[in-house]
Design a binder for these strands. Structure first.
Lengths: 102, 102
DNA sequence: GTGATAGTTTTCGAAGTATCGAACTGTAAG
DNA sequence: CTTACAGTTCGATACTTCGAAAACTATCAC
């Protein structure tokens, strides 16, 4: 595998290496799953993603940025709120890297 | 997902978050794949896994320990050498966490 | 025993990370 | 215009991590 690919992969894994950040991502993933039942990709407010994590606003903002920079989630403003969604391509890359005939 | 599970997952991701360590793991994964053709789980010397990585022995030793502690690989001594193999359960956990109906 | 090989432990400095509080920037509502 | 809300940026602090050098341990060959 080319060095650049390994580096990008490592960056994704790093984004998931912090428990709080991982929780954010898993919550979003779970929301996406639920929402697929309704036939569309789900978007989610930040507040909703926190789900009991006791973190300050600046910290959350930082974590969301890390996930976005790593290519794992997508964000967009909608009025006052920030809407997050899982980036399907990033997720697919992760899964592909871990998939073997093993 | 329970906090303990999230923490253990985060630890696995952290083990893969360093490019050099990720390369070690991917090399081992690749070796495992090749060897499945011969019908057994593959073991591999450290030296072989390095594959051009320019790292000192202490650094490699440290990385291997991190991967083992995270539950991603299994190690055992064989004479002078250390034999590494992928831990199938750890790998399965990772994959399960990233697998959705998404 | 000696020497060589393969890996480990300890320790260090440089660099990076997590979290927070305070101050700031939109955006919507009144 | 003012207030409140949602998130961001900045700066500080405490902590972690990567990689290396030096010294160590364990194993094999002689």
């Amino acid at each position: 595998m080319p060095k650049d690919d390994v580096d990008r992969l490592a960056r994704m894994f790093k984004a998931l290496s912090n428990p709080n950040r991982l929780r954010l991502f898993l919550n979003l993933l779970e929301e996406s799953k639920l929402d697929l039942a309704k036939g569309r990709i789900h978007d989610c407010f930040l507040v909703k993603l926190l789900g009991g994590l006791e973190l300050g606003a600046p910290t959350v903002s930082h974590h969301v940025k890390e996930l976005a920079d790593a290519g794992l989630i997508h964000t967009q403003r909608e009025g006052k709120q920030l809407i997050c969604s899982v980036d399907p391509e990033g997720l697919a890359e992760l899964r592909a890297a871990l998939t073997t005939t093993f």
